[in-house]
Design a protein around this nucleic acid. Structure first.
Lengths: 107, 107
DNA sequence: ACTTACCGTAAGTGATTACTTACTGATAGT
DNA sequence: ACTATCAGTAAGTAATCACTTACGGTAAGT
């Protein structure tokens, strides 16, 4: 299982987002993904590891290359998490007060 | 305008997510949000600043208190960004190759 | 077998950042 | 006016993390 924590952390980094958005065009090996980016190829490998653990990409071996592709699992997990905030009360100030106001002793 | 960068960075932090999820129950002042969290109240203020700049919360003054509430703008921006990945090719390896294979001179 | 191409990992470094305490400001009540 | 409450800001610190170079390991070609 993959947690929303990992997904958000993975996509918060600009370099990882650049890699992820490159995969929009289709699956690609590491070398192709690293080309054009302002970081070294090992850096891309490290980022891909994070993206994989977040459920955002999959990898398959093809000869000596490793082909990475977008994995929808991470995206759906993120979508579901966002949707959980959709039907929340934008107001409801009093309610939050009564529930959370423990912790300060009434002097 | 708020950028996807800020939104993702804001929600990547566990403390900020905890604050944001507390607001699910409804709007609340800083003191109430800070209660129960393992960080100081100034820390919560700093986090709320980041969340606000990311378009995830709004704040309004109410006497000496500052009431924070969820702002759907940041959430919709995030949803739209995710949806942009939805109709991508999971394969299409060759296509990516031909386009991106510039950068290495054919020796 | 040797070489070449491709990729992941190890180790070390610099910069970012989340946190603390101390303070300043503003509002409300007595 | 004085006091108390609530919250944002300043400054300093410790830990995280994205990056580099160096290395090791595997697959394919000659």
């Amino acid at each position: 299982m993959t947690y929303i924590e990992d997904t958000l952390v993975a996509l918060a980094d600009p370099t990882r987002r650049a890699i992820f958005e490159k995969l929009k065009r289709g699956a690609a090996p590491v070398g192709v993904l690293a080309a054009g980016l302002p970081v070294s190829r090992p850096a891309v490998s490290q980022h891909l590891k994070v993206l994989k653990q977040a459920g955002l990409v999959t990898d398959r071996a093809e000869g000596v290359r490793r082909i990475y592709a977008i994995n929808r699992a991470g995206l759906t997990a993120m979508r579901d998490w966002i949707d959980g905030f959709w039907d929340t009360a934008l107001e409801g100030y009093a309610a939050a007060f009564e529930d959370e106001a423990n912790g300060e002793e009434h002097k």
